[in-house]
Simulated scan of single mutants.
Amino acid sequence: MATKRKVNNLLALAVLSVIVERPMHRYEIASKLKERGKDRDMDIKWGSLYTVVQNMAKAGFLEEIGSERDGARPERVIYRITEAGRAEMREWTTELIADPELEATRFTAGLSILGVLPPDLVIELLGHRIAALEQNIAEVRRELAELAGGLPRLFTVETEYGLAMLDAELRWTRSFRAELVEGTFPDLGFWRRMHVENIDPAEVFELVERGELPE
């Protein structure tokens, strides 16, 4: 079970992962996060950075150690990680690695209400998704090949994992689309009828609840 954290936003963990190197101000933190691709790994919302850093300081994970001014720009507060922040980073990472947690995706949301679309349209849309996944996979493979020449594998395992997940999604999507194309998907006949005859969704749900879904 996920721990209820004082700052329960993955952006906080991303901040800890870069500021552990040395003290930084918020603009430098943001620059490092972008440079390391953390916005891809942790779905960062940049508009939250100021609030997250403040909350981490209140929680005792960061502390102010000074400030600097660049010309006419506003003064920039410099933060460093505390021992409590180091402990939080280790504990949070331990939890993320050890405890599996189902995470909803946009694709899962679409699949959950797939019946609102006619099967022939779904076949077409899945074809578009397959093409996009193939392109994404090719790009990630190129990125991994480039990284392999300059970085230890320790710093690319998240990209390897992302590639494995894309490969798995591509295999499943191809298989699912093939079932629709070949007509082997269960209830495909009724699914088509739903749209050809414009059957009311309320009637469909009533049939499903009674276990009387027709062929």
Rank of each mutant, 00 (worst) to 15 (best):
Q135H: 08
L147Y: 12
Y27D: 15
P152N: 03
W191P: 02
G37P: 15
R76A: 08
A2Y: 07
A132V: 14
A30F: 11
P186F: 12
R141I: 02
T94S: 09
K4C: 07
H128G: 10
K4I: 10
V140L: 14
A132I: 13
M1V: 08
E169P: 09
T93Q: 08
N9E: 06
E21T: 03
P23E: 03
R106W: 09
E35G: 14
S112P: 03
F176E: 03
T82R: 03
E134L: 02
H195Q: 05
M1E: 12
E35I: 05
L111S: 04
R141T: 03
L126Q: 10
S48M: 08
E197P: 00
L154Y: 15
A164N: 09
L170V: 05
D39R: 11
S31W: 13
P23T: 06
L154D: 15
S175A: 14
I130S: 05
L96T: 11
E75D: 07
G162I: 06
E215K: 03
E68F: 05
K45C: 11
D200P: 13
L13A: 01
G149I: 09
L49S: 01
L166A: 11
L11C: 02
F61Q: 02
L96M: 15
A12W: 06
S67L: 04
R26C: 10
P152C: 06
A98W: 07
F190D: 07
L62M: 14
R171H: 02
T184F: 04
I44N: 08
D120H: 08
A87L: 06
V157N: 04
A72I: 13
G183M: 08
V18N: 05
W172Y: 14
R76L: 10
D39K: 11
T94G: 02
A98F: 01
I97W: 00
P100W: 05
R153S: 14
Y27P: 03
E88S: 06
V15C: 01
D39P: 11
T105W: 01
A138G: 10
G162Q: 07
R106T: 15
M194A: 12
